[in-house]
């Protein structure tokens, strides 16, 4: 589904990603872990097409097509979804209005008729249940006055509504209390299928107690330094990121 080769990207002239290679297949869950500033969020934003990030080298092939040639909205309509680390507020625009517009864009892409507000209300009812959210949530303005936890839940609600093929979850676990983390994780698990893939960006291991990754990649200073199965996350939890960085420095010296 997604094939990243030798990806280099910079923001304001500073190189953040320094050669990423990653393969994600349908049905897989990949966890991207790493210390602060390692470039994990940048990777998610580059995949989504954030305008502040410039790709200087490498390629990203998504379902056989060049992802970098697509505008952010085109990527979204083709099934790339990002749950934001810091969802933005949009005053005066209700959640239901945004989600209906967004969902109808996806429907249009698939040659389907748009849903009117009443049809959409029915469609969204099940999704709300999935995340244990009240229907009144839909009438509130997008993220305006939401608590940190509500914002994150709202992101996953949008994911449920849009049913993406590739979900990029950028630190969705941060700012969630334990109950919210459980509900959000269960929601993500229910949405995962053999058809779609999830890339989960996280600093902490704890969300992986609820969502079992097929692969764990550790990003350090813009490069993937280690990849492994779910047990790699547990090792990290035990030893901390110093263990990996120390490890790489030793390797680095050994290689010189």
């Amino acid at each position: 589904m997604l094939s990243i080769r030798n990806l280099h990207a910079e923001v304001e002239g500073v190189e953040i990603l320094k050669g990423i290679d990653l393969e994600i297949k349908a049905g897989e869950v990949h966890a991207i872990m790493g210390p602060n500033g390692s470039g994990k969020s940048t990777l998610a934003k580059v995949l989504a097409g954030h305008p502040s990030y410039e790709v200087t080298e490498g390629e990203i092939i998504y379902n056989g097509e060049d992802l970098l040639e697509m505008e952010p909205d085109e990527r979204a309509r083709r099934g790339v979804f990002m749950a934001f680390q810091y969802p933005v507020e949009i005053p005066g625009v209700s959640n239901s209005m945004l989600m209906r517009e967004a969902y109808n864009e996806v429907r249009k892409e698939h040659g389907l008729d748009p849903l009117d507000p009443l049809e959409f209300e029915d469609y969204v009812a099940d999704k709300l249940k999935l995340l244990d959210m009240d229907v009144r949530f839909m009438d509130r303005n997008v993220n305006a006055g939401f608590s940190g936890g509500e914002k994150k839940r709202n992101e996953i609600l949008q994911m449920a509504v849009l049913n993406p093929r590739l979900a990029l979850l950028d630190e969705t676990d941060s700012g969630l209390d334990i109950d919210a983390l459980r509900i959000v994780s269960e929601g993500i698990n229910k949405l995962a299928s053999g058809e779609n893939a999830v890339m989960l960006v996280t600093h902490y291991q704890r969300i992986l107690n609820y969502i079992t990754p097929d692969f764990v990649h550790v990003l350090v200073r813009g490069r993937i330094h280690r990849s492994g199965g779910k047990e790699l996350a547990l090792e990290l939890e035990e030893h901390g990121y110093d263990w990996i960085t120390a490890d790489t420095e030793v390797n680095g010296e050994a290689g010189s």
């Binding site: 097409g49 909205d73 990527r75 979804f81 934001f84 864009e105 996806v106």
Partner: peptide, 18 residues
């Protein structure tokens, strides 16, 4: 704000209009 809405599939004009 514009990027957020584009990421939800709305094109730029539509995002601004919203």
């Amino acid at each position: 704000q514009i990027f957020y809405l584009q990421q939800r599939g709305l094109d730029e004009e539509n995002a601004v209009s919203l």
